[in-house]
Amino acid sequence: MTKWVASLAALLLGSCAGNQGSGPPPTVSSIVVFAASSLEPAFVKVAGRVSPKYRLGVVFNYAGTQALSSQLMQGAQADVFASADTAHMKSLQDAGLIGGSPQVFGHNRLEIAVEKGNPKGIHTLADLARAGLVTVLADPSVPAGKYAQQALARAHVTVHPASLEPQVTGVLGKVSLGEADAGIVYVSDIVSSGKVDGVAIPDGQNVIADYPIAKLKSASNNQGADEFISYLLSPEGQSIITGAGFEKA
């Protein structure tokens, strides 16, 4: 579904640019960006700037990093890949699918998502082990779940989750609907959701995710891919990234 929304957004952006007689000329080329789902709020804004600036249409395919990486392994056609961890980027690199060298464009740290106003008084990871508290985590097969597991191990906390969601959005959804009391997600998820509060996890326990981006060897629009990546790394791109809850590269 997110894919649809993204394509629609790209179409709208494209048509907007085309309709303005005095505005920038219509887009002349386009790129396909495979991006981790946690990047969606930030990348929609990035595309909003990149499209008119370089006359470049940007079509996104948002999904879990592991799903994107397996799509690319199966021969999916794309120009740029933005991953939520370095491990998947590395395995694509080992498979010879990455064109340039991957560059980290942002970091994301974990936070505890709780209901607005934090009615259960959750302040530390240790609170998540409290009896009667409904905690939801991401499945360890996705980066967010793997990081959450690491953070809990560092805090020496054993949590009995009510569910292991295959996507971070599942964790966020269950907390914002009030079905779960707490969940571990990325700071950027909490910023973009706006429906939950975040409880910070101290640096000593937190896990910081690196987000690398790279051009794919199979890219059909090399110039467009370079423009998108360099904009993301420019001060302007970086301020969009930090505005969405990420940390600067």
Binding site: S70, V142, A162, S163, L164, E165, P166, G170, G173
Partner: peptide, 25 residues
């Protein structure tokens, strides 16, 4: 199932859910 019941092995993780999670890794 995944939306309403979540995904926990032994409690709510039926085969289709297990397949979906396994497909990723």
């Amino acid at each position: 199932t995944i939306t309403f019941a979540g995904n926990l092995p032994g409690r709510t993780q039926t085969v289709p859910l297990a397949v979906y999670v396994a497909l990723e890794t």
